[in-house]
């Protein structure tokens, strides 16, 4: 049997990436400003962590025009949702071994 520790997803080791995943898990999509406000991080910091999540295909970016202003929104991909759920399961097993 694999130990819970090895099942933890390395991508989610960063608190900020964990936060992005948590926010996107409870709403359909969030724009950059919303994420920045909720997570209380700087533009550059947030952008680089979003880039990592995008590269892993856990998060999908969408650019659209709202009242002629460009707006970038982010949402979870199916793979991202699955990976995040698996990570939470692993965390849970870590806390309560023997389950």
């Amino acid at each position: 049997m694999k130990s819970a520790v090895t099942q933890l997803n390395r991508v989610f080791e960063s608190r900020i990436r964990l936060g992005i995943m948590s926010v996107l898990a409870v709403r359909e999509a969030a724009d950059f400003t919303t994420l920045k406000g909720v997570l209380e991080v700087t533009d550059g910091n947030l952008a680089s962590h979003l880039a990592v999540l995008e590269k892993n295909r856990y998060v999908r970016m969408r650019k659209e025009f709202v009242q002629r202003k460009p707006q970038t929104t982010y949402q979870l991909t199916d793979a991202g949702r699955k990976a995040f759920a698996a990570h939470i399961d692993a965390l849970e097993r870590l806390i309560r071994p023997g389950r």
Partner: peptide, 19 residues
């Protein structure tokens, strides 16, 4: 490691609620 797991879960919970 156990501590870290609990902290992570608390952070996830707080973020979900805030969002």
């Amino acid at each position: 490691m156990n501590e870290r797991g609990i902290d992570d879960i608390l952070a996830i919970r707080a973020m979900m609620e805030r969002a």
